[in-house]
Design a protein around this nucleic acid. Structure first.
Length: 738
DNA sequence: TGTTCGCTTGTTTTT
DNA sequence: CAAGCGAACA
C-alpha cells in the first residue's frame, strides 16, 4: 500500500466507519452499508483517496455497479473530488465492463468483431425458432420459462452440456437441447445476449495468460450493490481481483431484490468464504431518513432470516408518523394519494415526491388521476429507448449495414417500411436460405432467387440494392449523415403521421435518435481504434435505459420499486400493499421469495427522507375484473406505533357491509388497532414469527421472535396493551390465532 | 400484399 | 384491460 501524501479532510467528511472503509489497505473488504448510510460516499472517497493520496494510477482502478444511473452518479462525484480530468478510471456497469473486454478480446472466445447485443425480443424470436426446429410446442415449453431456465444456467456458468448433465427431468432435458440450439442460433447471427456478456467475460478473465495480464493492470476493484451479484459475476470479480486481491465490495443484504435474475445473497452472506481474510465493516448510521422510518422498516425486515442483521440509527430525530391509507379500490387509492401529496405543498415540491409501485401496470390509474388534476409528473418506466419499435427498426438498419448476415436484424427491416415483401415471400426466402445453408443475405447477394415468383424476386432485389448502396454510403459519411440519408432513402418516416399523437411521439423519438447519434459522434470522434464508432453507438443504445437518463425535476416521479433502488426522495408513497401484489402472487412459492418481496418493500420505505405514505386497496381491478384484496401481511409486521391509519370514507358508507367486514375482519364502526383487524392468514397452530397470539391476561399480540425449541422455547411478543414481552412458551399458555 | 378486426390469453421485477 | 395473434377482407 502506497503512503498517503497529503490529507484531504477525510475526517470531516466521513464518520469513523466510513473512514476505515475508505482508507482500507491491501486485501479484500466487505462493507455492509445500510440504506442511506453513505455507501456511494465510501466508494467515491475511496477512489479519490487512492488516486489523490496514495498515488495509484487512475486507470488501475475499476469500479462496477449495476445501473448506468449509479455509475453516472459515481463518476460525477469522483470527478468533484479529484484533480485529474478526464478521469481514466473505469466506472460503469458489470455489463459494460464485460462488453469492453469482449470488444477487445472477443475473438478468443469465438466472437466476431461486429457481434451485436441481443435484447429480450431478439432472444424470444431465436428461442421460438429453436422450438420450431426441435419440434416442440410453445404451449408445453413457454418461451419465457425456457429463456428463464437458460438464463439461470448461464448465471451458474453452465453450458448446454453441463446443464444437460444435471438435468433431472423431462422438461430440463428438453430445455438442454433447446439451450444448445438457441446458442447455435445466437452464434449464427453473431449475437450475444445479456447473460453471455458476463459468461464470456468470465471465460476471458479465467484464461490464465490473459487473466494475469488484466490483473496486472487492475490493482483496485470496487463493486457496488454486491448483494445483486450472481454466481457468474462473483466468479468474474474473483478472477479480476485475484487471490487476496484489493477488492472492496459494498452491499446490503436487506436490499437484495434481484434473486429472480440469479442474484445470490450468499455472495454477501458468505463473503469471507470466497475471500479469505476479508475485513468486514458495517455502516449503520443513516443520513437519509427519520428514526420513525428507520424503525418501521427495520422492524419489517427483521422478519427475514437471510441476513446478517443491523440496526440503523440517525441523529435527525423521529419525524412524522407514517401514513397508512386503506382505500376502497385503486381509483380511490390514486385519488387520495394525489390529494395527500399535493397537500404537502409548498413545504415539499412535487419534484421531491415519488410514488412507487410493484408493477408497471399500476401506473395507468395514477397517471389518469394526475393528468386529470393537471399535476405534473414523470413516468420513469422500465422501457428502454431501444425497445421502441421505431428505434429498434433504425438500430436494425444500422446492424444490417454493419453485418447483413445478421438474419434477425435483416428480418426486422426486410419489409419495414412495407415494400412488397410479405409473409409469403419471406417464408420462401427463409426456406431457401435454410436449404442452401446460407444466411439470408447470401441468398440475396448471390441472387439465388430462382424459384421465387417474379414479383417477390423483384421486390427482394430492390431491397438488396438499397442495402448495398447504403452500405457503400456508410463507409463514406459520418453516422448522423448516414442516418438521415437512410431515413430518406427508405422513406421510413412516411410510416408515421404528424397529425396523430402517437405518430408524433414516434417521429419525436426518431429525431431524438438522430441527435443522439450526432452527440455520440461528436463526443467520441477522438477514439476509434478499438471499436468502430457505429458498434460503440449500438452498444451504448443496447445498455442504456430510460431510468438511466432520468434526472427528475419535472413533477411527481412514478416508478417501480425496483427502479427506485439507489434513489431517495423527501416524500415517498408505496402503493398496493396487498397480498398478491406485494408480495406478488408469482413470488409466494417459497420463503426465499417472500423474503425478497419483503426486502422490496423495505427498499421502497427506505427511499423516504421525511414523509412516507403506504396505501392498500380493498378491491382492485385485475385483468379487467374486480378482485377482493387482502391487505399485505407485511403491514402487520410494521409496529402500529409508527403508523397513522386512515380509512376510505366510502368504506364506511359502503352498503355491502359484509365486504367491509371481510376486508377488515371487524365491523366497520368499531375501532380497533389495525394489526388485529387485519384478516389473518390461516393458522396452523404453531407459534412462529408474525403469528398472532392471545395471552390470558396480557391480551393479543404479535410474535416478534422465537428462540430455541421444545420446552425451553422463548418467544418475544409485542402485545397491543403492554408492548414487548419475553415469555417462555411452555408456561405462557398462549392461544395461537394465526 | 397489407390492413384491420376480433379473438384469446395472460398478469413482476431488469442489466 | 392490454397485447399479441390469426383470420378475413380491401
Amino acid at each position: 500500500m502506497p503512503k498517503p501524501t497529503s490529507d484531504l479532510e477525510l475526517e470531516q467528511a466521513l464518520n469513523p466507519e466510513q473512514l476505515a472503509a475508505v482508507t482500507h489497505g491491501e486485501g479484500p473488504q466487505l462493507v455492509l452499508a445500510g440504506a442511506g448510510s453513505g455507501k456511494t460516499r465510501v466508494i467515491t472517497y475511496r477512489v479519490a483517496w487512492l488516486i489523490e493520496q496514495c498515488g495509484v494510477p487512475a486507470d488501475q482502478i475499476v469500479a462496477v455497479t449495476f445501473t448506468n444511473k449509479a455509475a453516472r452518479e459515481m463518476r460525477d462525484r469522483v470527478e468533484n473530488l479529484v484533480v485529474r480530468h478526464p478521469l481514466p478510471t473505469f466506472l460503469g456497469t458489470f455489463h459494460r465492463y464485460s462488453l469492453r473486454l469482449l470488444r477487445r478480446y472477443g475473438d478468443r472466445v469465438g466472437l466476431r468483431r461486429d457481434f451485436v447485443i441481443l435484447d429480450t425480443k431478439d432472444q424470444m424470436s431465436l428461442l421460438k425458432q429453436a422450438l420450431e426446429r426441435e419440434g416442440l410446442s410453445d404451449k408445453a415449453f413457454p418461451p419465457r420459462a425456457v429463456l428463464a431456465a437458460i438464463s439461470g444456467a448461464k448465471n451458474q456458468l453452465l453450458d448446454p452440456q453441463a446443464y444437460e448433465a444435471r438435468a433431472e427431468n423431462f422438461f430440463q432435458r428438453r430445455v438442454a437441447s433447446l439451450y444448445r440450439r438457441y446458442q447455435f442460433l445466437v452464434g449464427q447471427v453473431s449475437g450475444v445476449d445479456f447473460d453471455d456478456m458476463i459468461v464470456k467475460a468470465v471465460n476471458l478473465v479465467e484464461d490464465e495468460e490473459l487473466g494475469k495480464r488484466l490483473r496486472s493492470r487492475l490493482r483496485y476493484l470496487l463493486v457496488d450493490e454486491f448483494q445483486d451479484t450472481n454466481h457468474a459475476q462473483l466468479r468474474l470479480v474473483r478472477a479480476l481481483s485475484g487471490e487476496g486481491g484489493n477488492l472492496t465490495a459494498v452491499g446490503d443484504e436487506d436490499q437484495g431484490i434481484y434473486r429472480w435474475r440469479g442474484a445470490d445473497l450468499d455472495n454477501i452472506l458468505d463473503f469471507e468464504a470466497s475471500f479469505p481474510g476479508a475485513a468486514v465493516r458495517k455502516l449503520e448510521q443513516n443520513y437519509r431518513s427519520t428514526q420513525t422510518i428507520l424503525d418501521a422498516s427495520g422492524a419489517l425486515v427483521a422478519h427475514n432470516t437471510s441476513r446478517r442483521g443491523k440496526k440503523l440509527w440517525t441523529e435527525s430525530g423521529d419525524g412524522e408518523l407514517i401514513e397508512l391509507y386503506r382505500a376502497s379500490d385503486e381509483q380511490d387509492e390514486a385519488k387520495w394519494l394525489v390529494n395527500a401529496l399535493v397537500g404537502l405543498q409548498p413545504e415539499h415540491r412535487l419534484s421531491d415526491m415519488a410514488i412507487l409501485l410493484r408493477t408497471n401496470a399500476q401506473t395507468r390509474v395514477l397517471e389518469d388521476r394526475l393528468l386529470q388534476k393537471g399535476i405534473p409528473y414523470e413516468l420513469v418506466a422500465g422501457t428502454r429507448f431501444y425497445d421502441r419499435a421505431e428505434i429498434k427498426d433504425l438500430v436494425a438498419y444500422l446492424q444490417v449495414l454493419r453485418n447483413p448476415w445478421n438474419d434477425l436484424a435483416l428480418g426486422r427491416i426486410l419489409n419495414q417500411p412495407p415494400r412488397g415483401i410479405g409473409k409469403g415471400t419471406r417464408n420462401l426466402l427463409e426456406q431457401l436460405a435454410r436449404d442452401l445453408g446460407h444466411p439470408v443475405w447470401d441468398v440475396l447477394a448471390k441472387d439465388e432467387l430462382g424459384n421465387l415468383p417474379q414479383r417477390s424476386a423483384k421486390a427482394l432485389r430492390a431491397f438488396r440494392d438499397l442495402i448495398v448502396s447504403l452500405r457503400r454510403l456508410a463507409e463514406q459519411v459520418p453516422l448522423p449523415t448516414l442516418l438521415k440519408q437512410l431515413l430518406s432513402a427508405t422513406s421510413y418516416t412516411d410510416l408515421f403521421r404528424a397529425d396523430d399523437p402517437e405518430g408524433q411521439a414516434r417521429l419525436e423519438n426518431i429525431r431524438e435518435f438522430v441527435s443522439a447519434a450526432q452527440e455520440f459522434t461528436e463526443a467520441n470522434s477522438y477514439q476509434s481504434e478499438e471499436t468502430d464508432l457505429m458498434s460503440a453507438f449500438l452498444d451504448q443504445i443496447a445498455l442504456v435505459s430510460d431510468v438511466d437518463s432520468w434526472r427528475g425535476g419535472k413533477g411527481i416521479s412514478l416508478m417501480t420499486l425496483h427502479s427506485a433502488k439507489g434513489l431517495e426522495f423527501p416524500v415517498v408513497a408505496v402503493t398496493g400493499l396487498e397480498e398478491g401484489l406485494l408480495p406478488h402472487f408469482n413470488a409466494q412459492k417459497g420463503p426465499d421469495e417472500i423474503e425478497e418481496e419483503r426486502r422490496l418493500l423495505y427498499v421502497g420505505m427506505t427511499r423516504a427522507r421525511e414523509r412516507l405514505f403506504l396505501t392498500c386497496c380493498q378491491r382492485r381491478r385485475v385483468a379487467g375484473t374486480y378482485q377482493d384484496q387482502k391487505q399485505s401481511p407485511f403491514l402487520e409486521e410494521i409496529p402500529e406505533q409508527f403508523l397513522n391509519v386512515s380509512l376510505s370514507s366510502s368504506l364506511f358508507a359502503d352498503r355491502r357491509a359484509s365486504n367491509v367486514r371481510s376486508f377488515f375482519g371487524q365491523s366497520s364502526s368499531s375501532r380497533r388497532r389495525p394489526s388485529s383487524s387485519f384478516l389473518p392468514p390461516e393458522s396452523d397452530g404453531t407459534v412462529k414469527k408474525g403469528s398472532q397470539v392471545r395471552h390470558p391476561t396480557l391480551g393479543t399480540g404479535v410474535v416478534l421472535q422465537t428462540d430455541g425449541g421444545g420446552d425451553s422455547m422463548k418467544i418475544t411478543v409485542f402485545f397491543e396493551r403492554s408492548g414487548k414481552r419475553r415469555l417462555v412458551a411452555k408456561f405462557a399458555n398462549l392461544e395461537v390465532l394465526s
